[in-house]
Amino acid sequence: MTMQEQLRALVERHLANLVVELARVSELLTPNSDTGALPLAQVVAAQEITHQLKGTAGSMGFSEIGATASALDENLKTLKKMPDPISAAQLQPALELLGSLRRIAESTTPAMSALYNADLSKLAQ
């Protein structure tokens, strides 16, 4: 396998993992169906995943996903400082950002990564 092929395989695997991780964030940010409120512990868990996604997606060459994950991360950090539980109204901006992030991720292909067609020929030692 060439270096370019290795790099592309890493990008492809990351994008598949990303969709799974975002589904986990979505589950964590699903409020109680009766009250519409969300336990703070779930916001904390969702923020930890989102924070990691921000760094990983950006480093994998998906700058738009990284930037949107960063916006969600900041929003969740603010929610973490609020009293437990989080109300439906407080949660709404985070859910909108998450919706945008999932739509972007689902419409992204590996070839859209800045790394996918990177010229490695001059870099290899």
Binding site: M3, Q6, L7, L10, R13, H14, N17, Q52, G55, T56, S59, M60, L120, L123, A124, Q125
Partner: peptide, 18 residues
Amino acid sequence: DEPDIRSITEFALKELGG
């Protein structure tokens, strides 16, 4: 600890950086 970032960094340092 994160597997994807670990893989891309390993690739960069080992394969590209030598």
